[in-house]
Amino acid sequence: MNVFRFAGDMTHLISILVLLLKIYTTKSCSGISLKTQELYAVVFVTRYLDLVTDFISVYNTVMKVVFISSSLAIVWCIRRHKVVRRSYDKELDTFRHWLLVGACAVLALVVHEKFSFQEVCWAFSIYLEAVAILPQLVLLQRSGNVDNLTGQYVFFLGAYRAFYILNWIYRYYSEQHFTRWISCVSGIVQTALYADFFYYYFISWKNNSKLQLPA
């Protein structure tokens, strides 16, 4: 565990806490894409199948359980919570996310390291995570104004990916550890998707103004 990897995991955790904080304090999920949250729930459940087959560390197990349970809880809140669900921007959140699931499933069946159930699921989860933010970015762009907590949520998610890339570079030089190329390529694609958002986030931060995305 190096400082970049730890920073990546922590910013990932912070992003989820920020999202839960927003939902809990405002009792609202406006600006949050249910589609993206559903994709993350699918990502974590399919990636962490090794929870039952391999033990890596207490840290690893705890984080996996936290990611699976928090993503399911968030989906439940947006769909079922009697107050929260009223603020869901259903008409803005129309991204056809099951197409992404289908495309990633096909890709995982074709491109994987080993043809086993767990390995194909793992590759699928990596591909799906790379594009899971798309419905959220589309929703933000459509709604124009982004509230602070939602902006911070997306910012921390993007920071998590950027730290993971630094972690891979660090591991390559310090441990001669080669990150799987499936992870590398997907991770770079995933981080690149945030480039536009980061640009406007920093401008609003510099000008001390509200985050607005161009239509």
Partner: peptide, 10 residues
Amino acid sequence: SSSSELKDEL
């Protein structure tokens, strides 16, 4: 690294 190597990243 082989594909049977443990995946230690999240």
